[in-house]
């Protein structure tokens, strides 16, 4: 079973500052979502509302169609894993994992198996863990929560690349076995792009986009080939990113390519692929473009 998410007119203020402004958002159950946004855009605040860490100043937050605030039936099945996790630092790793058993759905055996696979030292105190190992502990507790709505907020920070890769693989494997709603908030956009089904972009407290990944990727194109042919193919289009290696050039452009341009580019030996999510994100949240 998975949880859907619904926000209606949600605003959250920190004193005079509006961290989120009038957000309307619906997330279907059983998908993996990417939550993207620049620093301070409101990603963590949004997740905090879904996990009842905070109450909105205005509006309504519903998970599985039910209000989330102080709702034990719901929050016991919602997991928000923040950067570094939330643990009693004086406890050892095993005790920290056992605290997860406050959730009826928590799978301690799975948590201990993951701890072994990720080489977490069970007897070490949480405060003595390196940043990377602490992140692993947080990720393990989030996976083992087996929560119908599981959210990871920059949980990868401090993990090295192989560990991140294993985490994503484990997340995907467990998701396939036990489908649930997953939200990944991250700045490592291209790293997680392959796992995402839909993408939510927040910018300065407002919802900027919520689209399937394919729809976003169709908002532009990446053209790679001989430099001159690529330049001809993208002439007149808005360039998002550009790379050159010797005589080969790769250009990411905004906007869909018409059939004629595609045919001419292909005939000139230019390969056309979907736009990189990160390039598109940079473009969409560009302050000059959004009028900041």
């Amino acid at each position: 079973m998975s949880f859907s998410v619904s926000l209606r007119g949600v605003t959250l203020k920190y004193r005079a500052t509006e961290a989120l402004s009038d957000i309307d958002l619906d997330l279907e159950a059983g998908k993996i979502y990417g939550l993207l946004g620049r620093n301070g855009a409101g990603k963590t605040t949004l997740l905090s509302l879904l996990a009842a860490f905070r109450r909105p100043t205005a509006g309504e937050v519903r998970v599985d169609g039910r209000p989330v605030w102080e709702n034990a039936e719901v929050v016991s099945r919602v997991a928000l894993v923040r950067e570094g996790g939330d643990f009693d630092d004086s406890e050892n790793v095993r005790s920290a994992l056992e605290t997860g058993e406050l959730r009826p759905s928590f799978d301690l055996d799975y948590a201990l198996r993951l701890a072994d696979e990720f080489e977490l030292p069970l007897k070490t105190k949480v405060r003595e863990l390196s940043r990377g190992k602490r992140s692993v502990l947080a990720a393990v507790s989030g996976l083992a929560a087996r929560a119908e709505l599981t959210m990871f907020d920059e949980v990868h920070l401090g993990m090295d690349a192989p560990t991140r890769d294993r985490f994503y693989s484990e997340l995907l494997a467990d998701y396939m076995e036990r489908p649930r709603t997953v939200i990944l908030s991250t700045h490592l956009i291209d790293e997680v792009a392959n796992y995402l089904e839909e993408v939510v972009i927040v910018d300065r407290g407002r919802l900027l986009r919520h689209d399937p990944l394919e729809a976003l990727q169709g908002m532009g194109a990446a053209l790679t080939g001989p430099a001159e042919a690529v330049d001809d193919a993208v002439a007149g289009l808005e360039t998002l990113a550009e790379q050159r290696l010797g005589g080969t050039k790769s250009v990411t452009v905004a906007g869909a390519l018409d059939a004629g341009r595609r045919e001419r580019a292909a005939a000139a030996g230019v390969e056309i692929g979907p736009v990189g999510l990160q390039d598109l994100f940079i473009h969409l949240t560009d302050p000059e473009r959004t009028g900041a």
Binding site: A51, A52, F53, E70, N71, A72, V75, S76, R77, V78, A79, L80, V81, R82, G85, D86, F87, D88, D89, T99, G100, L102, R103, A145, A147
Partner: peptide, 16 residues
């Protein structure tokens, strides 16, 4: 003081 966020993160309500 330190356990409030730990408990909420573990899916407990404030009432509980």
């Amino acid at each position: 003081f330190p356990m409030l966020p730990v408990c909420i993160a573990a899916g407990l309500t404030r009432r509980e």
